[in-house]
Amino acid sequence: MQWIALLACGFIAVQMAMIIFSGKSLCLNDGCGIAEKLTTVAPLYLNLSGFVYFLAVFCACRWFRTRPLPAFDWLRLLLLIGLAVEGVLVSYQVFVIHTLCSYCLIIFSCIVLLNILYGRQQLFLGIPLFLAVLAAFTILNFGPALLTLQNQTLASGTIAVKKCALPSKQLYFFFSSDCPHCKNVLKALENCNSCEFHFNPVDKIKSLSIPELEYSRTYNPALNRLILSLVKIQTIPVLLVQNPDGLTFIKGEESIISFISQACFREEPQLYLDSSLYNAP
């Protein structure tokens, strides 16, 4: 057990070093970036707390290895605390941001393995504790709270922007690289118009065939999937319109093309549009 705790300490130390010297964390997917953006504590301090935790587990293992167990098993409590905290973090990823952080899962695996190695009684205590945390998250609704972060996530999910002279509207287009309906909408946006279009793909792409685009240095497609999932939209293409009184989501190829034809390709955009074309979240 002590070597697993020590290995976890080393792994977290490498992660902290990367954050300090390169400003980027080690992760195999986009989940880490999303999780970091939705926390109030800096990633460095989160990793530092994990480092201290595994160091405490290592010291406890070394201490109790050569001494009789005390009346109160502090190591058992320490392992249960770690399992409970990881239950919260895993539940947050599954039920709230709908994406998994590969680095977080590695740390979670270390804590699970430590609890398994501590014996059958630890499993009898740990499994119900972990399941209770999962059950608590299934009955909670975090959507409205996360939607307050949409200004940040919209910008972070934009791969490119098409700007024309004096745009009158800012629109966000959610699409995928293999969607034929999305391609038809993209083709309709090739010419300049009176709207500023932000392109937010739900998958990784390198570039678009539309001319005169201003590309972002980085973007995160998982954030776009998160936005759509929070407003219960499961199909694409989707056009997001920012209005003074809120947001409007326009779904479907025909509705989107009809909307932009009226709002973006006329010298004086119409003030009154067919309300059947769009849906509020």
Rank of each mutant, 00 (worst) to 15 (best):
C27D: 15
P43A: 05
I20C: 01
L28V: 03
G23Y: 11
I19A: 05
L26T: 10
D30H: 14
S25D: 13
V52L: 14
A35L: 14
Y45C: 03
I34G: 08
S49W: 00
S22I: 07
G50A: 02
L28K: 04
Y45T: 07
C32W: 02
A42Q: 14
E36H: 06
K37H: 04
L44I: 13
D30W: 03
L44D: 03
Y45G: 03
F51E: 06
S49K: 01
K24T: 13
L28Y: 12
L48Q: 01
L46V: 14
T40A: 13
E36N: 15
N47D: 13
Y45N: 03
G31I: 04
G23R: 09
D30G: 08
V41N: 05
V52E: 01
I19Q: 15
D30C: 05
M18F: 11
I20W: 14
N29C: 04
G23H: 10
N47R: 04
N29T: 10
K24L: 08
N29D: 13
M18V: 03
G33M: 09
K37C: 08
D30Q: 12
E36S: 12
M18L: 05
L38F: 10
P43L: 08
M18I: 00
C27Y: 06
T40W: 12
S25F: 11
A35T: 10
L48I: 00
T39K: 13
F21T: 11
I20L: 14
N47A: 05
S49H: 00
A35P: 01
N29V: 09
S25Y: 11
I20A: 15
